[in-house]
Amino acid sequence: MTDPQVALFMLGIFIFIILLGFPIAFTLMAMGVGFGYFAYFDPNRMWRAYDRAVENGADWWEQTSLWIGGFFNNQIFDLFVNQTFSVMANDVLTAVPLFLFMGYIVERANIVDRLFTTLSIVARRIPGSMAVAALVTCALFATATGIVGAVVTLMGLLAFPAMLKARYDTSFASGIICAGGTL
Rank of each mutant, 00 (worst) to 15 (best):
G12R: 06
I17N: 03
L19M: 14
L19Q: 12
P23I: 00
I24F: 09
F26G: 13
M31S: 07
G32E: 13
G36D: 09
Y37S: 13
F38E: 07
A39G: 02
A39N: 11
Y40I: 03
F41H: 14
N44Q: 11
W47F: 15
R48S: 12
R48N: 09
R48Q: 11
A49L: 11
D51Q: 12
R52I: 10
V54I: 10
Q63R: 12
T64M: 06
S65E: 13
L66D: 02
I68W: 13
G69Y: 03
G70A: 02
D78G: 11
L79M: 09
V81F: 15
Q83V: 06
F85M: 11
L93H: 01
P97N: 02
L98W: 09
L98N: 11
M102S: 05
Y104L: 12
V106Q: 00
R108I: 07
I111D: 11
R114D: 04
R114L: 08
F116K: 00
T117A: 15
V122A: 11
A123R: 05
R125F: 09
P127M: 00
S129M: 02
V132F: 13
V132K: 12
V132W: 12
A133R: 01
A134E: 12
A134I: 07
V136Y: 03
T137G: 07
A139C: 15
T145R: 08
I147Q: 13
G149W: 06
T153E: 06
M155E: 09
G156Y: 05
G156M: 06
A159I: 08
F160D: 08
P161N: 05
M163K: 01
L164Q: 13
Y168I: 03
F172T: 12
A173L: 02
I177V: 13
I177N: 01
A179H: 04
G180A: 01
L183D: 01
